[in-house]
Amino acid sequence: MEEEHHYSSASEPERVSPSISRSAALEALKNGPRGALVIAATAVGLLLVGWLLFYFVVFLTRGAVG
């Protein structure tokens, strides 16, 4: 199959992966970026939990100052 030219950051032509077909891409993306959402939500969730822990366990326990 003749590869059409496309840009790649790979150093050798042999390391350039073949392009996928449009129909395969459509199939993979038809439900939206679920995997990315899981990763992003996990990261934000961990940050939120960390923030809450520091706030209640470290900051508030050190007493009110005004």
Binding site: S19, S21, R22
Partner: peptide
């Protein structure tokens, strides 16, 4: 030949 994605991205 199946239509390939080149530089058009995901638009």
């Amino acid at each position: 030949m199946a239509e390939l994605l080149n530089n058009e991205g995901a638009s």
